[in-house]
């Protein structure tokens, strides 16, 4: 019998090891799996490479993971946001690496990684400093640069609904990187607001088919990052 439901966040996060590459879903607060990130802080794995669009805000969630010095390198498109000070300070001090990737290239690198495609060509970043050092090639008279697919050891994703097979539904723009990150990691762990019976999600509208998911944990009342930031809370509490 297949049952991907996990009962504790500690168990869910145990797949992360020192030196792991971890994809973390979310576009700012929308879709950020904050309870799983906090479990990763409790877990303590170090020297992580984290793939996520942003670098978190305040001193909770991804920003707290970075502040706890567990992240060696960030691969992201937009490392500064309102209320983000942790990453900028460490970066300015030369204490964290940054691989800056255009947002669409980041998405396609993750999609390609999950689809078994090692590299692809894109026109994005041609004629800019972000194309420097990349293999260039002309197709039909247009210049492109080569970009590599991205894979990860673990992906941490937030969803709205899930079943024991790992079939997922998302909410609004919290979907963002979730579906592609699920495909690109050896071990995809999902926190979901509601676990439903198999069959309760119409197969016609499943967004992430369960084959891409390894573990699902129900967090039915997830924290809102912006509220924690507004309250100036720090994790660990």
């Amino acid at each position: 019998m297949i049952n991907k439901i996990i009962d504790s966040v500690a168990e869910a996060i145990s797949a992360v090891k020192d030196g792991s590459t971890v994809m973390i879903g979310g576009f700012g607060e929308a879709g950020s799996p904050i309870e799983l990130i906090h479990a990763l802080i409790d877990h303590g794995a170090k020297d992580l490479t984290v793939v996520s669009n942003n670098t978190g805000s305040g001193n909770v969630g991804l920003a707290a993971l970075i502040a706890n010095r567990q992240v060696k390198k960030m691969i992201c498109s937009f490392p500064r946001t309102a209320n983000s000070t942790v990453f900028p300070e460490l970066y300015t001090a030369g204490e964290i690496e940054l691989e800056l990737v255009p947002q669409g290239t980041l998405a396609e690198r993750i999609r390609a990684g999950g689809a078994g495609i090692p590299a692809f060509y894109t026109a994005t970043s041609v004629n800019t400093p972000l194309a420097e050092g990349k293999e260039a090639r002309v197709f039909n008279g247009v210049e492109y640069v080569m970009e590599y697919g991205l894979v990860a050891d673990v992906a941490l994703v937030k969803s709205e609904k899930a079943d024991r097979y790992g079939n997922l539904l998302y909410h609004a723009t919290a979907r963002n990187f979730g579906p592609i990150m699920c495909t690109a990691a050896k071990n995809t762990i999902v926190q979901t607001k509601k676990i439903v019976e198999a069959g309760a999600i119409d197969p016609e509208i499943v967004v992430t088919p369960g084959i891409f998911v390894n573990g699902v944990i129900e967090i039915n009342n997830p924290a809102h990052e912006s509220e924690l930031v507004a309250a100036e809370l720090h994790y660990p509490w």
Binding site: S77, F78, P79, R80, F87, P88, Y91, T92, L98, L100, V101, P102, Q103, G104, T105, T122, A123, T124, S125, V126, T128, L130
Partner: peptide, 14 residues
């Protein structure tokens, strides 16, 4: 400066 590109280069390319 902290560089932050977001989707701007994808938009200008596409």
């Amino acid at each position: 400066a902290i560089p932050a590109v977001g989707g701007a280069m994808d938009l200008t390319a596409g």
